[in-house]
Design a protein around this nucleic acid. Structure first.
Lengths: 200, 200
DNA sequence: TTAATTTCTTAACCCTGGTTAAGTGTTTTT
DNA sequence: AAAAACACTTAACCAGGGTTAAGAAATTAA
């Protein structure tokens, strides 16, 4: 489906027209490279084993991005919400089958751009590269901070930090998935919550 | 101290003159922006609380990059060896005090370039930006893979993977530090190694 | 409204890794 | 060569989270 401007998250428009100062023509050209795609709750945007051949802007909805461990256990890495970009980084750039699953947790709306069209757009709109470099830098820093956090905080500390820093997650994501994100079992999260409320 | 070409790791020279095709002048200019610095075993290149104002190429030696958890426990994130770049990413770009310690584990030799000189070099040598984008991309992917690994593998699995994929680490890094990297105590690593050898 | 499904909780038992403590080697320093 | 510092191991005890199982509560579908 073609993308209609009026339905696009204003943050998307602002990012490119304001922050990266695309001209009207550049933005129109860029936008025309996208297809709109809706995915129902519980359906997948990506599965392990597939090659990731596109980037997708999450216009509306939310998802869980997870991998499987050796025992086939689902391990959630993060929860994409509105204004995030979805994809399997490694697979996208290497061309190899990926390890990530991306499953929508609400009925969602994506703006999808294929690798080919993105590359073409990059050639026609040099500013796009700037955007991408800065995005990559922030992504690298965020991942490093996440590693630090995983290494230095206990499950309980990560839980408390999540409540403090990203309370919105608790409004839209079931606790069982938050448990997986914290790297513990739902029963353990339940026990922990119980322990914390009875603490005083 | 000035950098002398004959003492530089050939990988450094190759990266810029071959892979990124710097001209002779560009490479000479770039190289003249560096200072050579030696740091003895156990001394620090960087400490938490300091603002990271330079990038450093590890020409010779190795180090441990760690952070402190709430209990003041050292948690090693990775072991830089020859041909790595040292620094606190987040602090370098944000200008805020960092959280990382970088301590040399052998007498080491660094090629250091200040933030100012690097920015200047970037303006004079546009190819430098290409290098940096590609480095950032790989860094982002590596960090994501590391997060996946931390989420899906047990301490024992991470230990066995380390032996398989980076056996050189065991030749130069004390086991106590490897334990910290695996996120367990030295005693637990010892017990695990004992368990594994007695397994059959 | 009832049935079915999903989400969350509680409890008992077990296992892994943390903690504390002590002891043995091995380097390094004096 | 002796002392000091460092690196590694072993063992006993304990706590946190995994596992299994069951049931309660809340949503969704029929």
């Amino acid at each position: 489906m073609e993308v209609e401007l009026k339905n696009i998250n204003p943050k998307f428009v602002e990012l490119f027209t304001q922050t990266f100062a695309f001209t009207e023509e550049e933005f129109a050209l860029f936008l025309s490279s996208f297809k709109c795609k809706t995915i129902s709750k519980k359906d997948y945007y990506l599965r392990a084993g597939e090659v990731c051949k596109s980037k997708a802007y999450l216009n509306k909805g939310c998802a869980r991005n997870f991998v499987l461990d050796e025992q086939g256990h689902e391990r959630i890495l993060f929860f994409p919400f509105e204004d995030w970009w979805l994809g399997d980084f490694d697979s996208y750039y290497s061309g190899n089958p990926g390890t990530n699953y991306i499953q929508m947790l609400e009925d969602s709306e994506l703006l999808v751009i294929s690798k080919e069209k993105f590359q073409k757009a990059e050639q026609e709109i040099p500013k796009l590269k700037q955007w991408y470099s800065s995005k990559m830098l922030r992504s690298a820093i965020a991942s490093r901070n996440r590693i630090e956090e995983m290494k230095t905080l206990s499950a309980e500390e990560r839980y408390l930090k999540l409540i403090e820093k990203q309370p919105h997650i608790f409004l839209r994501i079931p606790l069982q998935h938050i448990a997986s994100y914290l790297n513990i079992e739902p029963q353990s999260l339940s026990r922990m919550r119980n322990r914390l409320t009875n603490k005083h």
